[in-house]
Computed example of a mutant assay.
Amino acid sequence: MIKLSVLSACVASLFFTTTSWAQREISGHPLVALYEGAELGSGEQFEFDTYRLVTGFDFEDRIATGITIEGRITRLYHDNPDERSEHEIFANYLEAFEDAGLSVIFQCAGDGECFTGSTRNAYRNFNGFAAMNGGNSRYAAGTLEHDGRLAYIAFGTGRHGTSIDIIETTEMATGRVTVSAEALASGLEANGHVRVDGLLFALDQADLLPGSETALQAVAELLEQNPEMSLYVVGHTDSSGAFAHNISLSQRRASAVVTALVEQYGFDATRLEAHGVGPLSPEASQASEAGRALNRRVEIVLK
């Protein structure tokens, strides 16, 4: 097996100074070294855009399923060396990304896991992912820390080529989130409310993503250490989109946090009350992406 390495040095900050949708051709990405013997067939980067990440396959409806995220998007494709199998190439990339800290959300191998024999274009149809086209195709998607921020990685190997998509978000990577029961208690004591960093949601969705466990655990420890404490859990959004939709989205995100604390940690539901205020209480200007990213948050407030 040929050993790959995932590189992380000299990567630009992920706090974007522009929301440009401009596309440019590129020759690679600092996060990944191409498989030995492979030559880049195509590479493109969008400074800021939305991306539909495949995180599963619905065998009943025969379609790929996933979540929508946003950030700087890099898409790479290379032809496979003739003498290497799909399994070997994919295994090298998987090992390299896992060595770099990849937390896998979804992984599959071939017909019966990734898709069916008659639905091998499902990934291409979902988001243009080109490589998945044969019965021995392999695919994985996950998250890793990149320059202190959360990056999503999707990579797959088919009969002829390999696709690697990298989405660099403005969300803080879970491993670097400074959140603890003590920090939350201090914020509540000082201000009566505190933001809970590290609660992750897909774009325009209310389901908590993998990687939210650290933040949930901090709130759980706070409640355990203070058995008389009751909290409002308040969702906030940026100002993009319709006002009524944002109010609903923020409410549903707050409710998802309450549900997780009640169902996963066993807290009495009467101690937690979910509310959503949409864009009504921003922390920063809505004029920049960095400001909007700060405004998308969940806070806890003393009752």
Rank of each mutant, 00 (worst) to 15 (best):
E182Q: 12
A256F: 05
S250V: 02
L272W: 00
N226C: 03
E228T: 14
E213F: 06
S230F: 00
L7C: 11
E299A: 12
A256H: 05
R62Q: 14
E47A: 14
L302D: 04
Q225L: 10
N246C: 08
E171T: 07
L53Y: 07
E145M: 10
S288W: 01
T214M: 10
E263H: 08
E168I: 06
N80W: 06
T19I: 03
A256Y: 04
I247H: 09
T55P: 03
S239G: 00
S240R: 14
V196R: 08
C114K: 08
S239N: 00
H146E: 04
G148A: 02
T270F: 02
T169F: 00
T18F: 04
L200N: 13
R84H: 12
A220G: 12
R271P: 01
S248K: 10
T17I: 10
M229K: 13
A206S: 15
V234K: 08
L294V: 07
R271N: 00
V219T: 05
V298K: 09
P81T: 06
I164S: 06
R176N: 06
D207V: 09
Y51D: 12
L261T: 02
I69E: 11
A154M: 07
P210Y: 01
N133V: 14
N80E: 05
R292E: 02
F90Y: 06
F155D: 01
A185T: 00
L223F: 09
G134L: 06
G291N: 00
G37V: 11
T259P: 04
E182W: 05
L34I: 09
S230D: 01
R52K: 13
R296Y: 06
N121M: 11
S230T: 01
E168N: 10
G112K: 12
V54Y: 05
Y152R: 11
L144M: 12
N125S: 15
A284N: 02
L4G: 11
I300R: 11
V233F: 02
A38Q: 03
S27F: 02
E95C: 08
L188Y: 00
D207H: 10
R297G: 11
L184V: 05
L102F: 03
T270C: 02
H29E: 07
V277I: 15
T55G: 05
H193I: 11
F90D: 01
S180D: 10
G101S: 01
D165V: 15
G37M: 09
R252M: 07
N191D: 09
R120L: 13
K3H: 07
Y139K: 04
L31V: 04
A274L: 02
A9W: 07
S5T: 12
L294Y: 06
G192Y: 00
S118N: 14
G128H: 09
R297A: 15
Q45E: 14
E86S: 15
F155T: 00
E168T: 06
A284K: 07
D111A: 10
E283Y: 09
C10H: 12
